[in-house]
Design a protein around this nucleic acid. Structure first.
Lengths: 69, 69
DNA sequence: TTGTGACTTGGAGTCCGTG
DNA sequence: ACACGGACTCCAAGTCACA
């Protein structure tokens, strides 16, 4: 499984666990809602600075976003 | 500590543990040696596709590149 | 062997909308 | 609430010469 897929699954899972919409997460992380959607669908190739902001918004360590479940 | 710094430290540490030069790692990961240098100096903001290639070259999990030591 | 500045080009990231 | 698309800006990708 590629790194995009892993990130996608972890972001979607953690986001839902927190009861957040893509738009709400986008607002917390200060990224566009369509971009969150793109990450979860593996069509985007985000930079690590974006990953950092999403991790902070989800209150997890950056490494957790790349864990294989 | 920011995500760039963490990535930088882990890449440099793991690279040295394997006795690789920046150029050798660059060759394995198919990225320019100056780009590896830029990552280790936190001046680059790489995408996750680049991180994936470097993790593969270092034979570690992607998450390991973001671990805090 | 590594650091660094400069450069071009493609894609990261935003904003508008739709079903 | 989400997938998807178009148009846009600007930075990352990728490379080079030189210290």
């Amino acid at each position: 499984m590629g790194i995009r897929k892993r990130l996608a699954m972890n972001v979607r899972r953690l986001r839902k666990e927190r009861g957040l919409s893509q738009e709400a997460l986008g607002h917390e992380a200060d990224v566009d809602r369509t971009y969150v959607s793109g990450i979860e669908r593996c069509v985007r190739n985000p930079t690590i600075d974006i990953v950092e902001r999403i991790a902070k918004a989800l209150e997890v360590d950056e490494a957790d976003l790349f864990r294989r479940i």
